[in-house]
Design a protein around this nucleic acid. Sequence first.
DNA 1: ATGGCATGACAATCATGA
Length: 260
Amino acid sequence: MPQTVATWNVNSLKVRLPHLLDWLGRHAVDVVCLQETKLTDDRFPVAELQAAGYRSVFAGQKTYNGVAILLREAGTAAATEVQVNLPNFADEQKRLLAVTLDGLRVVNGYFPNGQAVGSDKYEYKLAWLAALTDWLRGELARHEQLLLAGDFNIAPEPRDVHDPALWEGQVLFSEPERAAFLALLGLGLKDSFRLFEQPERSYTWWDYRNLAFRRKMGLRIDHILLSNAAAARCTACTIDVEPRRREQPSDHAPVIATLG
DNA sequence: ATGGCATGACAATCATGA
């Protein structure tokens, strides 16, 4: 069973492939959940990742969205029970990919952004979240060891937001979105990051504008949730901000969970 | 109040993100 699992919204795998390959060379994580690959499947960089020691499972589309799961050859069994998108939610957008790895169910999601509270895209986000929650209930019944990773586009608590007063009621931090996050926890999932002491102002996303990263003006919206059995094995969860400091970075940083 | 910045499709701006 895999020991380390990461999630990273790369905001275009084409642009970020050099960063990703460099990062994989330094971290050797067993499983990497990617979001916003923005690539059709025929353009996925299978060979480059294979050369780096990773097999790829992916579901993409042109321009937007797209998810992938990378599996380190040396650290993981073959993927079984591959699921693309939610079976209970008809959707053209490629936002969900799940695989089973030697008994661990890995669910990778690129949750809708929601654009603005009250918009059509916000309603779509809440409907997608409701469908995800319904589907996960069954998945958890079938898989004691389960992990839900990805870009949730939800900051669950005030401490996950650089300026909670400014963000109150805004998309990514609105009450219905936070309630949907709590409903996921209510299924029997734990936020792996909060299982441990963490630095103040820990975030996973910073706006490209206004020097937001340097000014620590971020949000913690990328998460790794664990079933109780998986949480019992979890020994660490960290955010790696190093890639965000580089030239031409993704606006998201990777999150890494370690399972004992 | 608006745009700031980044990416992709497309060929000058525009949709989208968060």
